[in-house]
Design a protein around this nucleic acid. Structure first.
Lengths: 291, 291
DNA sequence: AATAATCAGAAACAAAACATACAGATGGAT
DNA sequence: ATCCATCTGTATGTTTTGTTTCTGATTATT
């Protein structure tokens, strides 16, 4: 038995994470995934659960400072002994080593609140309808965002662009916006992002698009942008944060869920298609692909 | 032993206690004394801890219904797993009216998992150090992202730009990147976003920036971009999603928490400064006449 | 007190778990 | 495109663990 370190096994894994290789990180991740139970079995069991070889496990535990697997495991055992015998487990805290008042924990709590509140209020029918709108190929998609939400618009655009044709992202410079209006046909879809400090030019832009027979999907906050009056489908999402800034987190969540749903709608869940998608990325691929 | 009994291991020991012999009872008592940690080691360890012989342990676990010591121990492990991890994994359903298999619920679950795992992984010291780096005005900040993460880079840029001077966002066209390198001075900070399907040009760019004495902050996934070798501070965040696409949600979360922390660092929490921030936004309303 | 029955540890054995060496594979650098 | 460094699994050897057998010891019974 070596002398006691003030670090838990989990901390030692995290601290050495940078120095680990790819498979060793894969192992580290499965270990931390439901720590510490995932580390209780034999070395062979852990290896196969992480889909790595036993020697990799040995090399990894040596790297993080143990002199062998038995040493690693007995450290874990004595750690478990202390943890369990202490009162109610504090496993539910976000970051063990950070105090509750730390910005990271405060933000995580706020994010949880926002997610819960927002998702409760989403009508699945709306979600499904928007999924269909974004999937159908018989019309074009236009995306516009404001000063802050422009990045979100861009994020949606980047993904949709790969999955289907006829997707345009309205540039940030509003001088050019009239040109975008000209390209809109009746039946097209305009996705609008407009949250607190609603912007006049977006309001105006949407109004004119609506007049051209465009269907409008709106992402806004819990108070609701005035653009809502022109929208066929509205997502009211909470953006409150312990900050002077608003949080776009839930918007990203819903947007990503939509992207996933559209992807499933267009291509189905078949692995064939996923492979196809994979090859699309191969141009930029640098590292080995994992799955 | 194949079938599952409703009894815990401890209960099974107590239930069979009457039928045990003297040394077996001695063993049982030591086991129950600080259950279940006392049962975690090898059979030899348990035997010597209880001051009985190894065969006695085998006979005992067979008496209480297991087919051998490994069976006994693996039962104990899965029991431990349920005991410790059950309060965590239970969360109330998100959208009542939507079935569990609905994409929104599946995505919300994945998001929760990603958040929990990632936040455990974050070292608060890293977070605080990065906050400081982004707050200090004696150097410039450069931000770069890849094909997908470019939007995230832009999101961070949009916010930082308001709070401080000397923030640049590297354009997506990598032909122009050498010019950005020229503008980097030793002590500057480069924030890099690089997740799965790590991009070669980002790797190269970061390497050259590092060579110029730039401090590197990296946002990457749980496997870790190879850029990590040049990084001073790394955030490993989970990006798994029930989709062919990855989820940037946790990246947004940490980024927003950082933005909030930087805002507090630079301006403090005083309402005075928030008002000032407010007026900065009011200017954007002037743009309405442009359209 | 003698005998039978049960019990517990020692010894021997089988089966894993753990560690090491090595070679093919992979990715980066020139 | 080729070489070099690094990584990772296979194969192999060594130790430890888990199991069985068996003998000495203990206790109960007559």
């Amino acid at each position: 038995m070596v002398e006691k370190t003030p670090f838990t096994v989990a901390e030692r894994i995290r601290n050495h994470f940078e120095g680990l290789t790819r498979t060793e990180r894969q192992l580290a991740n499965t270990m931390l995934e439901n720590y510490p139970m995932s580390c209780l079995g034999s070395i062979t069991a852990i290896a196969s659960a992480s889909e790595v070889s036993a020697p990799t496990v040995v090399r990894m535990v040596k790297k993080i400072g143990f002199c062998g697997f038995p040493d690693f495991q007995s450290s874990l055992h004595s750690e478990l002994e202390e943890t369990i015998s202490s009162p109610i487990t504090k496993y539910d805290r976000w970051s063990d080593n950070a105090p509750d008042e730390h910005m990271l924990n405060r933000f995580a709590d706020a994010a949880m609140q926002n997610m819960r509140q927002s998702l409760k209020h989403i009508d699945p029918a709306t979600f499904d309808a928007v999924t269909r709108l974004l999937s159908q190929a018989d019309h074009d998609i236009h995306i516009v965002g404001g000063r802050i939400t422009r990045s979100l618009a861009d994020y949606l655009f980047t993904h949709l662009q790969v999955m289907r044709k006829g997707v345009t992202c309205v540039a940030s410079n509003s001088n050019t916006w009239p040109h975008y209006l000209l390209n809109m046909a009746p039946g097209d879809v305009l996705v609008v992002f407009d949250i607190r400090r609603y912007e006049h030019n977006i309001h105006h832009f949407t109004k004119m698009a609506k007049a051209r027979g465009v269907q409008v999907v709106l992402f806004t906050d819990q108070w609701g942008s005035p653009v809502g009056q022109y929208a066929d489908h509205v997502f009211n999402l909470r953006i409150e944060a312990p900050s002077a800034w608003d949080s776009s987190l839930v918007i990203v969540l819903v947007m990503e869920a939509l992207i996933a749903a559209v992807q499933a709608e267009i291509w189905g869940d078949s692995k064939e298609r996923m492979k196809e998608l994979e090859t699309l990325f191969d141009d930029t691929k640098l590292f080995k692909k994992f799955f």
